[in-house]
């Protein structure tokens, strides 16, 4: 079988059927151009073309790398974050045991107590979560805006920290230990195939271990193709100020139907 005969979308014909093909190609372009979905990909027999098969695998590879690679240590140093780690030993365990990703390792607890300011207005936390790529792509810009914006309003940010193998709720443990009024946790989200750079910011007022998800607020989809990090930083400043003023977060602050995915 000639492979060409099964490839539906090549503009391969001229002559009598040329006009029909032109019209079809135009209709196909309209479909393909307006959707984020992989449409009009064609086929080789009953299987995808080699190009679309390899494109899918390449995108999946990027997503997998974002889950399995670690955040660059020099970035953590440059941002002057105190380095902490949860009770998780490695990526495999991180994926299988969300409970261990919510508690700091013993030596990190000591570091936290020794090096971080007690009882800040806001404790800022950066966690690798499910995407180191998201942290590296967004946190430098976002953190600068967040720190400056909070400083302008005389809100004390204490000593910001980085948590390796951190889950969303590690902010409960850290906030409780430091007796922070509230916490902001910037977490790498589960990568999709379209982008591995999506970051979310989770917030809690009155952090303590075991606080239900509904008591937390979130700003999600932070990346250049979604909510850009600079804008997200500005939104976070407003949200933190509101939380501190109203002494609340999550459903206590407003109706919040956003999803919690980490």
């Amino acid at each position: 079988m000639a492979s060409d005969s099964n490839r539906t979308h090549d503009a391969d014909s001229t002559g009598k059927s040329g006009q029909v093909d032109d019209r079809r190609d135009e209709a196909l372009r309209r479909i393909v151009d307006r959707t984020p979905t992989r449409l009009g990909v064609g086929r080789a027999g009953p299987r995808p073309t080699t190009a679309s098969l390899l494109e899918l695998r390449a995108d999946h590879g990027l997503a997998r790398d974002a889950v399995h690679s670690r955040v660059d240590e020099t970035l953590v140093d440059d941002l002057e974050l105190v380095k902490l780690r949860t009770q998780v030993a490695d990526t495999d365990q991180y994926l299988a045991r969300p409970d261990l990703g919510r508690e700091l390792a013993d030596e990190s607890l000591e570091t936290l107590r020794a090096e971080c300011a007690h009882a800040p207005d806001v404790q800022i936390i950066v966690s690798d979560g499910l995407s180191s790529t998201a942290v590296e792509a967004n946190v430098p810009e976002l953190l600068a805006v967040l720190r400056d914006g909070l400083a302008d309003r005389d809100i004390d940010v204490g000593t910001p920290v980085f948590v390796e193998y951190g889950r969303v709720d590690v902010m409960d443990a850290i906030g409780e230990e430091l007796e922070a009024d509230c916490c902001v946790n910037l977490v790498g989200e589960r990568p999709g195939l379209r982008t591995a750079e999506s970051l979310s910011a989770y917030l809690v007022y009155g952090p303590e271990r075991g606080l239900p998800t509904a008591k937390k607020s979130v700003i999600s989809n932070i990346h250049d193709g979604g909510l850009p990090p600079v804008e997200a930083g500005a939104e976070l400043v407003d949200l933190v100020a509101e939380m501190l003023e109203r002494e609340a977060s999550g459903i206590d602050l407003r109706d919040d139907d956003r999803e919690f995915t980490t």
């Binding site: 979905t37 449409l39 899918l56 195939l193």
Partner: peptide
Amino acid sequence: VPMGDDVMLN
């Protein structure tokens, strides 16, 4: 789903 990739449910 198209090419196995659901861009809504991720």
